[in-house]
Amino acid sequence: MTTYAALLRGINVGGRKKLPMAELRTLMEGLGYGGVHTHLQSGQAVFATGRGDEESLAAELADAVERHFGFSVDVIVRDHAYLRGVAESCPFPAAELEARQLHVTYFSAPVTADRFAGIDPAAHLPEEFRLGDRALYLYAPEGLGRSKLAEVLSRPRVTKGLIATSRNWNTVVKLVELTAGGE
Rank of each mutant, 00 (worst) to 15 (best):
A5K: 09
A6W: 07
L8G: 08
R9K: 13
G10E: 07
V13T: 10
G15Q: 13
R16Q: 12
K17W: 00
K18W: 02
M21L: 08
L24T: 04
E29F: 06
E29M: 08
G32H: 09
G35Y: 06
G35T: 08
V36K: 03
T38Q: 05
L40I: 15
Q41P: 03
Q41R: 04
G43D: 07
Q44L: 09
Q44H: 15
A48D: 12
G50P: 13
R51K: 14
G52A: 04
E60P: 09
A64P: 01
A64I: 00
F69E: 02
S72P: 04
D74C: 02
V75R: 05
D79N: 15
A81D: 11
L83M: 12
R84Y: 06
G85W: 05
E88S: 11
F92S: 08
P93I: 09
A94L: 10
A95S: 13
A95E: 14
E96F: 07
L97K: 14
Q101H: 10
V104F: 11
Y106S: 02
A113S: 11
A117C: 00
G118C: 00
D120F: 02
A123H: 02
A123V: 00
H124P: 03
L136Y: 02
P141Q: 08
G143Y: 07
L144C: 04
K148R: 15
A150E: 11
R155F: 00
P156R: 15
P156C: 05
T159Y: 11
S166G: 09
N168Y: 12
W169P: 10
V173H: 07
K174M: 06
E177Q: 14
L178E: 15
A180Q: 11
G181E: 15
E183S: 14
